[in-house]
């Protein structure tokens, strides 16, 4: 009994270690001005080189661990966002990059904007800024990974189902 317990502990540790050291991202723009998008791309380029932290930008939701969302959710992209989230295998995490992803930012009150990311899918880390600097994005990612590593509670409640729009 004890041995299996220890064995499980070790396995868990290895799992968490691997998870923290290899976050593969997928990026979706749900209505942003693409300022954040180019900053996310910039984190992969030589100056910031997120690959040294194990970050890889993936194209297919099936391969990704972290969904990086930018922008407020527009009516049309809401469905897509939901679908990409559903397509990702567990365990999955969501990072909202930029002020409009967190709260709607400058676009709150525009008629085609539903709101922020966590009204549609649960968000684990928020990175404010308009747009955040690439360093700030790396910082947000590191904060998420630290939370995963220490097992700190991160918001994972499912938001209430939104009313069907139209």
């Amino acid at each position: 009994m004890n041995i299996t317990q220890e064995w499980n502990d070790i396995l868990d540790k290895v799992k968490t270690w691997a998870r923290v050291n290899s976050p593969w991202l997928i990026h979706y723009n749900s209505g942003s001005c693409n300022g954040c998008d180019i900053e996310i791309l910039a984190t992969l380029t030589p100056r910031y080189d997120a690959e040294r932290l194990g970050v890889k930008l993936q194209g297919s939701p099936r391969h990704a661990d972290v969904l990086v969302c930018t922008g407020p959710v527009t009516m049309q992209s809401r469905d897509r966002l939901q679908r990409i989230y559903d397509q990702m295998p567990d365990p999955k995490f969501v990072v909202a990059v930029g002020s409009c992803a967190i709260s709607g930012g400058a676009f709150q009150g525009c008629y085609n904007v539903i709101g922020h990311i966590d009204e549609v899918i649960p968000v684990d880390a928020y990175i404010p800024g308009c747009p955040p600097r690439p360093e700030a994005i790396i910082d947000g990612l590191v904060k998420l990974l630290t939370a995963i590593k220490t097992g700190a509670p991160i918001q994972t409640e499912k938001p209430e189902e939104l009313l069907d729009v139209v």
């Binding site: 880390a125 928020y126 404010p128 955040p132 360093e135 700030a136 910082d139 904060k143 998420l144």
Partner: peptide, 12 residues
């Protein structure tokens, strides 16, 4: 202060 990221909205 530009490293403002957090795992919840409370500090905002």
């Amino acid at each position: 202060q530009w490293e403002l990221a957090a795992t919840s909205k409370v500090p905002f």
